[in-house]
Design a binder for these strands. Structure first.
Lengths: 189, 189
DNA sequence: TCATACATGTAACCCGTTACATGATTAC
DNA sequence: GTAATCATGTAACGGGTTACATGTATGA
């Protein structure tokens, strides 16, 4: 049960509608979480019922009306409680890893193709995260920003996201090259 | 629906009982997947019903009887089909990242403690994975093994697992030191 | 004697994903 | 015209986690 906390964390920057929250999850939270709009709408509804967020209706003329949500006192209290609870170590759980694990009984060409595709995705994400980091730190350099900037939380998680994707990229390239070298080569079975 | 494929991949090395499979998931698969025994038992039952694995009863005298499972022809076919399907990129989804994202409204000391704890766990996992890697490659060095060894699949995923934990470790240390430096310092709010 | 390893499951619940459903406005 | 953006949901399904349930054998 941690999506609720990710939502609370996302709302710390200011009040957001469900729709804006979905955007935020596609951008700033994307390094460590992902959620579809439906899930966010229903999670917001649940959080409101429990009094952890408060919504206020904003009437718009040209656009459909929307509801903006803020974290309540009870919401902050819940975040603090959450911060104190132990966090279970995470692992990767990736289809591509399962495929590589079975590499010895799967056609190499297929696998190599998928590894290259993933490498391309990782490259794109790295660029995206780097742009985000530049935007967050503004005119300060990284050391300055981390030492004295505001809201370093999202910056730190974005750093981890970038590093994670760099790890994906390096590994995909390496695994693909290993598999390519073995194709047709003389190998133990 | 990918646990089934992880199970099939794990069974490639030879026939295993549910219990042994649970061990295997705690060791060799641990770098990229985790599953509780209950889930494995029920997944094996499902796979057997669908004909993707075959179980054979082994009567034991001093121990309770057990059932050993092997991948069937249909199971291999399913693995090949799976290998051809697109794999969605994964992301981290970690409680600790949520906490760091909310760092600006959470007590730093708590967070630093959790980051250090996680760093210790990562260190332990790295050692574990390194031992596993040494065991898998036997007397060959890494380049030799990757070029000509048998069963490189698990080796490659274990490399990713080690690298992932190294990433966790580096990031935890960095994030903790950033937070420590800011404690009591003059910071934007 | 007590903890650990061996050995296998069932049941309930929550969370996440997929599919369905609607409808106006703005920019190309 | 057509795609993208704004805006909000419901329903069904499947997977993962937690709790429950049982029993033997070995080693400290």
């Amino acid at each position: 049960m941690a999506l609720r906390h990710a939502v609370l964390a996302a709302l710390l920057d200011g009040e957001l509608s469900g729709y804006q929250l979905a955007k935020a999850f596609d951008a700033g939270m994307a390094n460590f979480w992902h959620a579809l709009p439906q899930q966010l709408y229903s999670e917001l509804a649940k959080l409101e019922r429990e009094g952890l967020v408060a919504g206020r209706e904003v009437v718009q003329e040209t656009r459909p009306n929307k509801r903006l949500f803020t974290v309540t006192e009870a919401g902050f209290a819940e975040l603090h409680r959450f911060a104190g609870a132990p966090s279970k170590p995470s692992f990767i759980r990736d289809d591509l890893m399962v495929k590589v694990a079975a590499a010895d009984s799967i056609e190499a060409a297929e696998l190599i193709g998928q590894l290259e595709e993933r490498a391309a995705i990782a490259t794109a994400k790295i660029e995206l995260f780097e742009a985000l980091l530049r935007k967050m730190r503004g005119e300060l350099d990284e050391a300055e920003f981390l030492a004295r900037g505001g809201r370093i939380g999202p910056y730190l998680t974005c750093l981890r996201g970038r590093q994670f994707e760099q790890g994906n990229l390096d590994w995909c390239i390496r695994a693909a090259s290993v598999l390519r070298a073995r194709e047709g080569a003389d190998v133990q079975r």
